[in-house]
């Protein structure tokens, strides 16, 4: 049996509950504020960005472009003027400072395609990658060495000297034919009278990730 004292105390029960509410709500106002933690942990970000996993080599990329692999999009993070001078085929230009604009997020924050970021070197592309990784964008890649390396290896591959191993020659043959694909013409090529094939490009549609929370809700009392 509940004794009289507790009964008296409990007659104030609604007042007590009301006070608890006010205290809790007041606590919210008084709590020290801090900047919201956005994105993944710094520790995780560091270990992701230190690892070289994100790099894709120029050879692998050239192979993908030539074989018309449909599973990736190229994003050029350089400025517009450099983009208009030369860029990889079918690249989309998103200058680094526009990286987090709503229109760019359409390309970056999706899980349909691999996104290969590149710039002249991989300096800016890495910065873009790290920002993207913090916001946990999926499937971002960086072209190792960027356009400069692209030039050095694919467009103008160094001719191996006689003493080099056979793999080097294979690699050179691949790179040379790749460079032909990208428009470079070699003197001996003319004899065969071959028109470089200009590939028709099928534009890719990027569908932004559907958020799971968009479920229709039934609700109510």
């Amino acid at each position: 049996m509940v004794n009289r004292k507790t009964a008296k105390f409990l007659s104030f029960r609604y007042t007590i509950l009301a006070i608890i509410f006010v205290v809790l709500a007041g606590g919210l106002v008084l709590l020290p504020k801090y900047e919201k933690h956005e994105g993944i942990n710094p520790e995780e970000l560091l270990s992701n960005s230190v690892s070289p996993e994100r790099y894709i080599s120029t050879d692998a990329l050239a192979n993908k472009i030539i074989s018309q692999d449909p599973s990736f999009i190229l994003i050029d993070v350089r400025g517009e003027d450099e983009f208009s001078k030369y860029s990889l085929p079918n690249a989309i230009n998103i200058p680094l400072k526009n990286l987090l604009d709503e229109d760019s997020l359409m390309y970056l924050n999706q899980n349909q395609y691999d996104v290969v970021l590149f710039s002249n070197d991989n300096f800016y592309a890495d910065q873009a990658w790290i920002l993207g990784n913090r916001l946990s964008f999926q499937n971002l890649k960086v072209l190792k060495g960027g356009i400069n390396n692209w030039y050095k290896t694919i467009i103008n591959p160094p001719i191996p000297t006689e003493t080099m191993p056979a793999q080097e020659f294979d690699l050179y043959t691949f790179r040379k034919s790749a460079s032909m694909f990208f428009g470079v013409v070699y003197p001996e090529q003319i004899k065969e009278v071959k028109k470089p094939v200009v590939k028709k490009v099928i534009p890719k549609k990027v569908i932004p990730i559907k958020k799971k929370k968009k479920m229709p809700v039934e609700g109510g009392c």
Partner: peptide, 12 residues
């Protein structure tokens, strides 16, 4: 936070 606090007061 202020909104929550004011809302609580209004409710009570």
């Amino acid at each position: 936070y202020w909104f929550a606090f004011i809302f609580t007061i209004i409710a009570i």
